[in-house]
Simulated scan of single mutants.
Amino acid sequence: MAAAAARVAERHDWDQAWLNFEVTGADALPTLGREVEWETIYDQDGILIQVASKEALLAMKLRANRPGRDTGDIRRPLGLCHVHTLEACEDFYEEFYPGDSLAPRAVSIVAAILAEGPPHVPETPERFAL
Rank of each mutant, 00 (worst) to 15 (best):
Ala26Glu: 13
Ala26Cys: 04
Ala28Lys: 14
Leu29Phe: 15
Leu29Glu: 10
Thr31Pro: 00
Thr31Met: 02
Thr31Ser: 11
Leu32Ser: 14
Arg34Trp: 07
Arg34Gln: 12
Arg34Glu: 14
Val36Arg: 07
Val36Ser: 11
Glu37Arg: 14
Trp38Asp: 06
Glu39Ala: 12
Glu39Cys: 11
Thr40Asp: 07
Tyr42Asn: 04
Gln44Asp: 10
Gly46Gln: 10
Gly46Glu: 07
Gly46Asp: 10
Ile47Gln: 04
Leu48Cys: 08
Leu48Pro: 02
Leu48His: 13
Leu48Gln: 13
Gln50Leu: 12
Val51Leu: 15
Ala52Cys: 14
Ala52His: 05
Ser53Trp: 09
Lys54His: 06
Glu55Cys: 08
Ala56Arg: 08
Met60His: 09
Met60Leu: 13
Lys61Val: 01
Leu62Lys: 09
Asn65Ile: 01
Arg69Glu: 10
Arg69Cys: 01
Thr71Ser: 14
Gly72Gln: 12
Gly72Ser: 14
Gly72Tyr: 05
Asp73Ala: 08
Arg76Val: 15
Pro77Leu: 05
Leu78Asn: 07
Leu78Ile: 05
Leu78Cys: 01
Leu78Trp: 02
Gly79Met: 09
Leu80Asp: 00
Cys81Leu: 03
Cys81Trp: 00
Cys81Lys: 03
Val83Leu: 06
His84Val: 02
Thr85Pro: 05
Glu87Cys: 01
Ala88Tyr: 06
Cys89Lys: 01
Asp91Pro: 00
Phe92Arg: 02
Phe92Asn: 02
Tyr93Trp: 08
Tyr93His: 10
Glu94Met: 10
Glu94Lys: 05
Glu94Cys: 11
Glu95Val: 03
Glu95Trp: 03
Phe96Lys: 09
Phe96Arg: 06
Phe96Thr: 09
Tyr97Ser: 07
Pro98Ala: 08
Asp100Glu: 15
Asp100Tyr: 13
Asp100Pro: 01
Ser101Asp: 12
Leu102Val: 02
Ala103Asp: 14
Ala103Ile: 08
Ala103Arg: 13
Pro104Asn: 15
Ala106Asn: 11
Val107Ser: 07
Ser108Tyr: 02
Ser108Gln: 15
Ala111Trp: 00
Ala112Val: 01
Ala112Leu: 01
Ile113Cys: 01
Ile113Thr: 02
Leu114Ser: 01
Gly117Glu: 02
Pro119Ser: 02
Pro119Val: 00
His120Tyr: 10
